[in-house]
Each structure stands twice: as C-alpha cells, then as structure tokens.
Nucleic acid binder design. Structure first.
Length: 188
DNA sequence: GTTTAGATCAACT
DNA sequence: GTTGATCTAAACG
C-alpha cells in the first residue's frame, strides 16, 4: 500500500518553503495540511460528489472552498484515484506588499497571510480560481523553493474527524503559522 | 442527495 | 477582536 508515507504527505512537505504567486502577490508558503482524499475522513473528497470532482482530476490544480464567508485554497496532488490535496494554511508575503495590504486592510504584515482564509484573501484567490493550473504562468502559480528550514509536523487544525493524524507541516519558528486548535468535538 | 450562504462559538491573539 | 476542512437550513436539480 504505502511504502512509507502517503504521497500527499511528501507533497505537502515539499510545498513548505516554496514560492506561491496569486494575482499580483507572492508569498513563501509557511504552513500546509495534507488531506488524503478517499482514505481520509477529514477530506472533502472522502465522499465523491460533483463538488469534489476537482480533487479527482489532474494534479497541480486549485481546489477552493468557502468557509465562514472566506475562501480556502488547496493544491490537488494526485494520485487521481485517491483525490488527495494540500490545504494552504499560511505564508509570508515577499512581493506585492502594497497590494496585499490593500486586500487585507489594517493588519500587521505577519498577519497578512496567516490562516487559510487570510492567505486566500491576500493572494486574491476566490471560487473563480477553482480548477486553475498552478504550474503554468497563470494568475496563480507555484514558484521555486525559497526556504529550506526545519519543517515541523503536528495534527491538523480544527478537524473533527481523523483529528490525530500529524499531517500539518510548517516552517519551524515562523510567526505566520497558526497555533494548534483541536476541534471541540474531536474524538478522544 | 448536493450545494451554497450564513452562522456559531471555543480557542486564539 | 479574530478565526474557521463545522454545522444547519434553505435552494437546487
């Protein structure tokens, strides 16, 4: 089955420290979470519906969903039969600072892309970017790896199901990384 | 049965 | 004050 860790976990770790550009703003990704699709009860793709089709499609595309009036962005990783994806949770702005500040309003720079909702807003990612390719030169695209610091791991933030999988990864010491919050109704 | 918008509220800053 | 792979209810096909 899995030689060591699922592909999406490796992929998640490889995204940490990488550059991500969105609609005029560039960040270094500082925090992500892996979602294992059909093998992960916490994944939106755990049950296949038209909405989760994007995650069953080709990798390196965006899966965007709404939450609490905000948006959250994922990168589909494949393999397609698993429908796995990586949730982008936080980043540090390195380019387009003025635009980022415009989008986020009056917050400190470290808060600009802290948390999934804020990251999406800073990068200007909305439902309109659903399914967008991130390897080409489109409005949302991945860049090279910018930082190779120590990557820490821990349980995912706020998930009720599979709450103990240590599938969140972040750059150690980064202030843009959210604190861990366990879901109130998470098992055990 | 699914999608979407709008909440709710415990834990965080 | 903010945040959010939760939760529910109303709308949709």
């Amino acid at each position: 089955m899995f030689g060591s860790m699922p592909h999406v976990v490796d992929r998640a770790q490889s995204l940490v420290g990488r550059e991500l550009h969105g609609h005029g703003v560039t960040v270094v990704i500082t925090e992500v979470e892996a979602y294992g699709g059909i093998e992960d009860p916490a994944s939106h793709a755990y049950i296949r519906t038209p909405r989760s089709e994007t995650m069953y499609g080709p990798p390196w595309r965006l899966y965007v969903y709404r939450i609490h009036g905000h948006h959250a962005a994922n990168i589909v990783t494949g393999p397609t039969e698993l429908a796995a994806a990586v949730l982008l949770r936080a980043g540090r702005v390195i380019e387009g600072l003025d635009l980022a500040r415009d989008r986020r309003g009056d917050v400190s720079d470290v808060q600009l892309a802290r948390g999934p909702g804020n990251l999406a807003k800073t990068l200007g990612i909305t439902s309109a970017d659903l399914g967008a390719e991130v390897l080409g030169d489109g409005p949302v695209r991945l860049g090279p790896r910018r930082e190779a610091g120590i990557i820490s791991a821990g349980p995912r933030v706020g998930v009720r199901l599979a709450a103990d999988r240590p599938w969140r990864f972040w750059l150690a010491g980064e202030r843009s990384v959210s604190a861990y919050r366990r879901h109130p109704k998470a098992q055990s």
